[in-house]
């Protein structure tokens, strides 16, 4: 099944293997965080490992292997990287805002509308 890799020289195979393992390891560490961390706002940090360095390592490995195998520059993986870089913050911010909105409505123990001064004024009243 991996027969097409036979023509890959050793100088490309080693870094590709290291990048793959590093990327998958970081992604797994982040996803383990989904299980281990207590509380929603802590778990919000878990996916960012996979979307930053984890994804970058896997994409770099893919670029390296395909570029060497086809002996031309294969960089269309950059497209996925660019897309994830721009979209992840948007989704995480949307989720965080939705969560804090819901928590405030339910009266949970979260900071109120983002101004400490205004909060102090309120507590004095």
């Amino acid at each position: 099944m991996t027969g097409h890799l036979d023509s890959l020289p050793a100088w490309a195979a080693w870094p590709a293997a290291a990048l793959l393992l590093a990327g998958a390891g970081l992604t797994l560490a982040g996803s383990l965080g989904l299980l281990r961390l207590r509380g929603f706002y802590e778990r919000l940090h878990a996916p960012t490992l996979g979307t930053s360095a984890g994804m970058a390592c896997v994409l770099l490995a893919s670029m390296l292997v395909f570029s060497v195998l086809q002996s031309r520059l294969v960089i269309h993986e950059l497209l996925i990287g660019l897309l994830m870089l721009v979209t992840t913050p948007v989704t995480l911010m949307l989720i965080a805002r939705a969560a804090i909105h819901r928590d405030r409505q339910e009266g949970a123990d979260v900071p109120g509308q983002a101004s400490p001064e205004r909060r102090e004024e309120k507590s004095k009243e």
Binding site: L8, A10, A17, A24, G25, L28, S31, L35
Partner: peptide, 23 residues
């Protein structure tokens, strides 16, 4: 070196599969 790449590919897939299960 090719065996290393093939094995680390397998290991990476297993790790990503485990991450998938966590999510």
């Amino acid at each position: 070196s090719l065996a290393v790449l093939a094995w680390s590919l397998l290991l990476a897939q297993l790790m990503l599969g485990l991450a998938f299960c966590c999510a």
